[in-house]
């Protein structure tokens, strides 16, 4: 179980507002990346985000560029998961490959509000907020190995080391 607070945003949150393009080739350090997370959408976010916080958004989270900083900056900021109605394809992949949980859940997306305290039970596929319980769609088996290894780099490393 992991506890956190909700930051609620709307539909179609794109990679340019999650991590502005003007920094993509300039900023590589995680701490610095975290300082610019969500900058063009909500200046409060980077100032007040705490480890374990969860972003809850509408549909098509992470649309736009393939830049991985848009997933890496949230992880660097301590965000444990993004809950959304749906994710843009490359964002979904990038997040998994970097070990950021991406959970698809319509009900939680509709119901949760900024500041709500929640817990996420990953093995059970549940998001719990007080009395309310929301079930999320479990990730496909084939990608769980990557998350379990702590991301694709570790996964590939282990695989190459084992001669696979």
């Amino acid at each position: 179980m992991s506890k956190g607070r909700v930051w609620k945003y709307g539909d179609d949150i794109n990679t340019d507002v999650i991590f502005p393009g003007r920094y993509t080739y300039k900023i590589m350090e995680p701490a610095e990346m975290a300082a610019h997370a969500m900058e063009d959408l909500d200046a409060e976010f980077a100032r007040n985000v705490r480890p374990g916080d969860v972003i809850v958004a509408g549909k098509n989270f992470g649309c736009g560029s393939s830049r991985e900083q848009a997933a890496a900056c949230l992880r660097a900021a301590g965000v444990q998961a993004v809950v959304a109605k749906s994710f843009a394809r490359i964002y979904f992949r990038n997040a998994i490959n970097l070990g950021l949980a991406v959970l698809q859940c319509e009900e939680a997306s509709d119901a949760l509000r900024t500041g709500d305290e929640i817990e996420i039970d990953y093995p059970a596929g549940k998001i719990i907020s007080g009395e309310r319980v929301f079930k999320f769609f479990p990730l496909p088996d084939s990608v769980i190995g990557i998350i379990e290894a702590g991301g694709l780099i570790e996964f590939t490393k282990e695989k190459l080391a084992s001669g696979g």
């Binding site: 991985e68 490359i90 990038n94 490959n97 990557i146 694709l152 996964f155």
Partner: peptide, 20 residues
């Protein structure tokens, strides 16, 4: 199809990728 940087690095190393 577009992929991320980490995936590109993994392809450079292992010459494979998962795709749905």
């Amino acid at each position: 199809a577009g992929i991320g940087r980490t995936e590109a690095a993994s392809i450079w190393a292992a010459d494979e990728i998962w795709l749905r």
